[in-house]
Design a protein around this nucleic acid. Structure first.
Length: 199
DNA sequence: TGCCAGGGATTAG
DNA sequence: CTAATCCATGGC
């Protein structure tokens, strides 16, 4: 981890208001971040980059805005479901007052929100110490010979790092940056050098 | 041109 | 519990 810090220094990977994180977390599912940014920019232009914006907008409006991210019909439903849940619970202010475990359950109860999406919202949107296990993290760990399941992997990172959302976000950012250099695709891992780094 | 991207739900074995 | 399939556009 220290070697990654020396290599990349302090990076803040994703800083945005909680409502934008909720939306971005859905849009980024199986999708490149550049395309997500386009969709978010469009949503902002039409005043729909918020919980009430998504809840009140016509489906076709959301579909048109998120089209560049792919899976646009599925994602529109997921955005409606997630923002509806948040609105029902009293908005992001009410969520901010909830304990982390409860908040996680409420997100996971939404159709289309799995562990990764829930944890990324917790960490990046609400500053909670939830380490996100994504495709890059799995890929690097696999190259290192660590083949445990997601739940164990998550505990591994959460124990190794200071229990703090900023520390988790930073470490995850380093992992992603390194993965983009070293293991560009799933198949490009043959000559991967990650095993030379100390965890 | 074909492959792949910061998932998740569903179905089949 | 693992594996395959669908959702779909955009970039190289």
């Amino acid at each position: 981890m220290q070697e990654l810090e020396d290599r990349y220094g302090a990076i803040s990977w994703w800083e945005a208001p909680p409502e934008e994180v909720l939306i971005g977390a859905i849009l980024t599912q199986q999708t490149r971040w550049e395309n997500v940014e386009r969709a978010i920019a469009t949503l902002k232009e039409i005043q729909c980059c918020s919980v009430t914006g998504v809840v009140e907008a016509e489906r076709e409006v959301i579909v048109a805005a998120v089209r560049p991210t792919g899976f646009y019909r599925v994602k529109t439903e997921r955005l409606k479901a997630l923002c509806g849940q948040v609105a029902d619970l009293g908005g992001v202010e009410a969520l901010a007052a909830m304990p982390t475990a409860r908040l996680r359950e409420e997100f996971l109860a939404v159709r289309g929100v799995g562990e990764e999406t829930a944890d990324s919202i917790l960490c990046y949107g609400f500053g909670r110490p939830a380490f996100v296990i994504d495709a890059y993290t799995r890929r690097i760990c696999r190259c290192m010979g660590i083949t445990v399941g997601d739940a164990k992997l998550r505990r591994l990172f959460e124990q190794a790092l200071p229990r703090d959302a900023v520390a988790y976000a930073q470490a995850h950012g380093w992992i992603v940056e390194y993965a983009k250099e070293c293991c560009r695709t799933e198949r490009g891992c043959k000559e991967c050098q990650v095993k030379n780094l100390s965890g």
